[in-house]
Amino acid sequence: MGQKSYSIERKQAKWGLIFTIPCLIFFAVFSFYPIINALITSLTNRRAIARTSEFVGLENYIYIFTKDNGGFPLSNSIRATLIFTIGTFIPMIIASLIIATFLMQLRKDKYRGFFQLMYYTPAVLSSVVAASIWMIIFDPRGLMNQISNFVMHTSGVDYNWLVDSTMLQISTMMIYFWKYIGYFVILFITGLAAIPNTIYEAATVDGSSRWHTFWKITLPLLKPTTAMVSIMAMLQCLKTFSTQYMLHQGGSSRFPIDVITMNIYFTGIRNGRLGRASAMSIVLFLIMLVFTYIQLRLTRSSEDVEY
């Protein structure tokens, strides 16, 4: 019997490998090859139209970090991406933490389910629909100007939601915030639900006020979740493309919202500078790698938490 099961296991192992082959082919062709190809292309002066491709060393990297790339330098893209990321994820984390804490106070799970369902609905829509909805709302004659005029006690003022460079950046943040707030609320609720009730009961017995309980118990226990969710939100924001692209397609100027992904698209695909755009892709890859590494470290440490 021992001999037989050994051979069965060997056989299973051999055939098991065959089951993984389709997946490995997909990874090789559509994941690993592209990133290696991007690395190689970033060291050449490859262009789409001229079909040239010569090895130029680090020239592309020096170019994208020092030159202005036809009016849209990478430094501006990094600025735009960072402002968007910080301006979106900090309000999002604070708001979703507050909303999740409130939701946990509800008497019935059924209510909580309803609110979650509602808050998450915008995330179900495609980013094109989300951006289009808000472009109509931000239109000079649209809803947003009417609300702003009402709130600011002005009349007929156009707040230039899609024109003014500061307003344009705020608009992209608002669209993203609206679309993903429900997602982060759900993540926080998962974290909050993992904190055992006994801790709260003990606190109540000890006469701790709810405000005090939140600051001294909930928040410290929620630290790993908060760190994880923050990193995830940042990773999401760094990858943003559709919202900015849609607004630019709709007529807004590119410069204030020229995030890294959009610069890659315009440099590489519209202008055919494949070498330079590949170098930008590699830069984006490295930035995201750092964040993902932090995320993995946090996941590992958050699994060790004991309440």
Partner: peptide, 20 residues
Amino acid sequence: ITMGCMLLSPQVCVLPLFML
């Protein structure tokens, strides 16, 4: 290998995929 592929985001790969 599977986990490694999670590090690659579509945004990073879109240009080389376009060429491929």
